[in-house]
Design a protein around this nucleic acid. Structure first.
Lengths: 322, 322
DNA sequence: TTGAAAGCGCTAACAA
DNA sequence: TTGTTAGCGCTTTCAA
């Protein structure tokens, strides 16, 4: 591939002059500018981003770390981040931790090797001291997205708040027994439970972790058999909700008449399921855009050391399943 | 961040010696090795991949271009590629063309700027001369994945063949009228139509492009009204199929009794839809792994100029919707 | 086994 | 306005 030095040789100017032309520096005579540009075009010159990055200036690379891109929500998030970044002249190095802490840590090393200018990350355990210390160790700005990491720049929908919104809605709708599908330290569950406790329904809520479809069916069926009150299942994400709907169909229960189902993430799919899925929407595009913008600002003056905590409102999307 | 030169200073050796130690060159005395490694560990040394890449050796970066990462199938594909690449010490720069040819071309320039070692791509129009010329111009190996690009390295499921498999199956199942959802130049449709023609059913098949949900409902309802024979809809992907199922439900038609529905891609979702979706599975993980392997081989000896054409078998997954 | 020197392709500082 | 020089952090000769 042709280099600046080569173009310089061909156009009989110095290599830094070529650099000036190609970088739009106005202090170059029009004739030279033309000659150089013509030559660059002719040979299809492409800047060597590695050499430029080596200068200590910008690499124009952003690291993006998600837990699982195969999940529609994160796929969409990654897409939005990529769009926002590209509009600002940045490219994306993508990484998938797959909920594996070792991978997560390894990736943060890779990110440093490539001297990315910043990182947008969905950590596995955002509240852990580990995440905090990883981020501190990195010498580039990191924003945590869709999760709240105390003391670090975070752009997120407040999961406990969203969980409590769901609780309020379901109680209002007449549900009196609740099963959450997901980990018990999930913020959504924490908020969900708290709100239910405030309604005196603290005993009526529990959770199950989704391991296999068959196991979930057994657990769900047992749980349903264990009480009489109007029951609702709050799934930690739309994919879980899809499986819950499937299981309820297998069990011959009708939704929402016999059991209510609430999803989370507002994946495209939910809008066309049967019944159409009630769920919680996050303002993904806005979060992604603002997180990237903030990252770029942080790069400008990294000394501006006040971590930003930016919660976004979740929106209940009520369809047919509750 | 600490550099080799700095480690050299601290351990009283020359910088190239540090390089040797860190690269596992055996011709270094054990004492020095220890000292250097200890120092590197202590200061959490990370190689500057830009400087290394600048040497003209490897950047250990792979470009991945997909048409739409928000589509579950491509998200999964990207994930598999990333996994395969990382196992081999490569990182991924991701790009989304969003079916926009300008973006596609722009990305190929970005890829060159970062001097990636290779590219795995899902082109927008794989048969176009444009794609061919883009790839030729790039000075790194490119493999086309999930599409067959004549004359270029391609790892794909043969869409026309898959389309004809679907046709054979549906005819065998007793269907006699067929609607394909997707573009008329889609390979699946081409093969689908041809196989139907061979059965004397060439007049009984047509296609519709999915623009909006409402429009599709009108078109689908009109098409269903226009004939008596047993009808099947072949959706270009599972997401279309999801929407078709939804529309048929709206129209009060039961699947598969009144209309059959076939998807494509075997997205996770399909397994839990109601009715569970019959679809076509591609061996994504295998394709991804082998494409990456081939790419790495190509890098070793780029002179080996015989383009590989690697078709994979599609697998019909028959569930409840046909 | 180790070090000195050169150079990858670029930017930045300084001179002319 | 243009050119000269230096240097980013590494790898790669070539000597010692």
């Amino acid at each position: 591939m042709i280099t600046m030095r080569e173009i310089a040789r061909l156009t009989h100017v110095s290599q830094p002059t070529v650099s000036r032309v190609l970088n739009g520096n106005p202090k170059v005579s029009p004739e030279i500018r033309e000659r150089v540009l013509a030559c660059a075009r002719e040979h299809d010159y492409q800047l060597n981003a590695l050499a430029k990055g080596l200068q200590g200036s910008r690499t124009h690379l952003l690291g993006v770390l998600v837990t699982d891109i195969a999940n529609g929500f994160f796929a969409d998030l990654a897409k939005q981040i990529e769009v926002a970044a590209r509009e600002r002249g940045y490219s994306i190095i993508l990484f998938n931790s797959d909920y594996n802490p070792a991978s997560e840590q390894e990736y943060l090393d890779v990110v440093r090797r490539y001297r990315v200018d910043g990182v947008v990350a969905v950590p596995i355990r955002e509240t852990s001291l580990q995440w905090h210390s990883y981020v501190e160790k990195l010498d580039v700005p990191v924003v945590t997205i869709t999760r709240r990491a105390p003391g670090l720049d975070s752009f997120y929908v407040d999961h406990p708040v969203a969980g409590s919104q769901v609780a309020e809605y379901l109680v209002d709708r007449g549900y009196r027994r609740f099963l959450f599908i997901g980990k018990n330290y999930d913020g959504k569950y924490v908020g969900f439970r708290q709100a239910l406790q405030a309604h005196g329904l603290g005993e009526a809520v529990t959770n199950r972790v989704l391991r296999t479809h068959d196991q979930l069916r057994r657990e769900l069926s047992d749980w349903l058999a264990a009480g009489q009150e109007r029951a609702a299942v709050f799934a930690g994400n739309d994919i879980y909700a899809l499986q819950v709907l499937d299981i309820l169909r297998e069990l011959g229960l009708s939704v929402p008449e016999q059991v209510g189902v609430m999803g989370f993430d507002d994946t495209f799919m939910g809008r066309h399921l049967s019944p159409r899925l009630s769920t919680v929407r996050q303002p993904t595009a806005r979060m992604a855009r603002e997180a990237v913008d903030w990252l770029l600002e942080r790069m400008e003056d990294p000394d501006d050391r006040e971590p930003v905590d930016r919660p976004y409102p979740a929106e209940l999307i009520i369809r047919e399943s509750t």
